[in-house]
Amino acid sequence: MSLTAKQMQGREALLKSYNKRLKDDVKSILDNFMEIVKLAQVDDETQVSRLTQIEEINFQMNVRASNMVRAAESLMKLVADVKQYLILNDFPSVNEAITQNSELFRTKSIEADKKLLALRDDMAADLFELEEDYYSSIYKDNK
């Protein structure tokens, strides 16, 4: 029981972490975008020298754009992780697949049995006559 509780707790924590990652990444994209837009406005009054300011803005924009890309890739990774998690832990669908498979195999086995039975009956009928003919024929001498 304690193990199950622990597992449940772990699962909850994992789901929360997925949620957090999603929010963080989306927030990161949004914030960085906003910052880039803010940086884009021409500022008149500044105390640092113009060249420094330009360099700083350039660098900041690059970093923020890279951050946006990273966040997007992180979102993709999150999607992959969520997919993987769903695939590995979706027991109802696994059960459904197992039921479907077992049904399929059962049907196949019934079909095979039916065919075998039909084949057996046919062969029995033929063999009976063939055996009778063979043993009373001259061909058995040449065996």
């Binding site: 880039i36 940086l39 884009a40 021409v42 803005i57 924009m61 923020r64």
Partner: peptide, 10 residues
């Protein structure tokens, strides 16, 4: 300069 920076970011 801003335009260039934006271009880089883009």
């Amino acid at each position: 300069a801003l335009k260039k920076s934006l271009n880089n970011a883009a």
